[in-house]
Simulated assay, not measured.
Amino acid sequence: MISIGTPLLWTQFLVFVLIALAIDFLALNRQGSHTVSMREATIWTLVWVAVSSLFVGWLWWYLGGTGPDPISRELADAKALEFITGYLVEKALAVDNIFVFLMIFTYFAVPSAFQKRVLMIGILGALVLRAIMIFIGAWLISQFHWIMYVFGAFLLFTGIKMWWAAGQEPDLGNNPALRWIQRHMKLSPNYDDEKFFTVTDGVKMATPLFVVILLIGIVDLVFAVDSIPAIFAITTDPFIVLTSNVFAILGLRAMYFLLAGMHERFHLLSYGLAIVLGFIGIKMLLIDIYKVPIVWSLGFTITTLAVTMLLSLRIPARTGKAGTAFPFSPKRDDGSTEEK
């Protein structure tokens, strides 16, 4: 499999990400547990978008004839476009991910001051998981070309399933993973600051925060299964696949707090994501018959998402059904409880 990822490029990318994570962690530790304001979320979202833009700009410069190890301007243009398209697709899919996070936080009445650290842990887990799955996917594609048809069929099926489920209220209470956790772990009904385990009446129990971490990890896995094939439909270069994924995930925490209060406004966005996934699935199924230009994929994705977001603002949302209640009502940081 052809890739622009030289040992030097991989090293530079790794250093870049580690520095970005270190800055993010330093800011998190200095601020401590606190409720993230809309202003803070907006600033950090813009920072991560700027960082991603700087990276793709640097990559384009590095490959395009003016960097220290030039290859060609044509290749630089192609790779930059692949990165931007992949980044946009992953960002779009991350929005659906964010709405599921919001449902989990609301269901477990997670205090807003704790959500920031929980998301940071979830993002680290997602980075490791995506890297592993991307390299496995790249190896499979290099060894078995027909796996592209499997990915395409899976994405088409996922798009149809997402369209069918759009607008329906998820029933977290009947989620198999949550029911398994309830059966196999002793769960405390109360939060104990940001601890994952606590002792109640001499018995060690998992706090609701630990359950939330587990569920977010499962959500990361499920969404990775959808998004990894989607990015391989845009490019099979492991370097572009991984870098676009990583930069899309790095800004996930800030984007969550920015969009958490807007999920009802963009209630039709899931339909747009379903259309995008279906389009990408068909694109993969036709890969040996007709290769859809990257520019077309980028234009289709932007147009579809923009149209569904505009329609969301014009068409009122339907009221969904409430999910099944959790067997206990976690206490908030002010000591009160929220009945589900």
Results as ranks from 00 to 15, higher is better:
residue 172 L to I: 10
residue 129 L to H: 15
residue 159 G to K: 01
residue 228 I to M: 00
residue 161 K to T: 04
residue 166 A to Q: 06
residue 189 P to Q: 10
residue 114 F to Y: 15
residue 101 F to Y: 15
residue 162 M to W: 03
residue 212 V to W: 07
residue 196 F to E: 09
residue 172 L to P: 01
residue 103 M to V: 14
residue 127 L to E: 14
residue 189 P to D: 05
residue 173 G to L: 00
residue 208 P to D: 00
residue 215 L to T: 11
residue 165 A to L: 13
residue 185 M to S: 10
residue 173 G to K: 00
residue 146 W to V: 10
residue 122 G to Q: 02
residue 97 N to Y: 08
residue 204 K to R: 06
residue 170 P to F: 13
residue 214 L to H: 12
residue 151 F to L: 04
residue 110 V to P: 13
residue 116 K to V: 11
residue 226 D to N: 04
residue 110 V to Q: 10
residue 165 A to D: 06
residue 109 A to E: 00
residue 170 P to Y: 06
residue 178 L to P: 12
residue 113 A to V: 12
residue 193 D to M: 14
residue 224 A to R: 14
residue 129 L to M: 15
residue 169 E to V: 01
residue 189 P to M: 10
residue 192 D to Y: 03
residue 163 W to G: 02
residue 138 A to R: 13
residue 179 R to E: 15
residue 227 S to F: 03
residue 149 Y to Q: 13
residue 127 L to F: 15
residue 135 F to K: 13
residue 187 L to Y: 02
residue 107 Y to D: 04
residue 208 P to G: 01
residue 99 F to N: 00
residue 138 A to N: 14
residue 123 I to E: 02
residue 165 A to N: 04
residue 160 I to T: 08
residue 173 G to Y: 00
residue 176 P to V: 10
residue 104 I to G: 03
residue 97 N to F: 09
residue 117 R to M: 03
residue 214 L to E: 04
residue 212 V to N: 07
residue 207 T to A: 05
residue 119 L to D: 14
residue 213 I to G: 04
residue 175 N to G: 13
residue 185 M to G: 04
residue 211 V to C: 15
residue 168 Q to R: 09
residue 201 D to Y: 05
residue 143 Q to T: 06
residue 106 T to R: 13
residue 138 A to Y: 07
residue 96 D to E: 15
residue 120 M to R: 04
residue 200 T to H: 04
residue 152 G to Y: 08
residue 128 V to P: 00
residue 160 I to V: 15
residue 161 K to M: 11
residue 99 F to E: 02
residue 176 P to G: 11
residue 182 Q to G: 01
residue 144 F to K: 12
residue 135 F to T: 11
residue 122 G to S: 09
residue 225 V to D: 14
residue 126 A to M: 13
residue 126 A to S: 14
residue 148 M to D: 11
residue 195 K to L: 02
residue 212 V to E: 06
residue 154 F to I: 01
residue 114 F to W: 14
residue 121 I to L: 06
residue 126 A to F: 08
residue 170 P to E: 09
residue 213 I to F: 12
residue 101 F to D: 05
residue 151 F to T: 05
residue 152 G to N: 09
residue 221 L to W: 03
residue 222 V to W: 08
residue 183 R to W: 00
residue 107 Y to G: 06
residue 205 M to N: 04
residue 164 W to N: 03
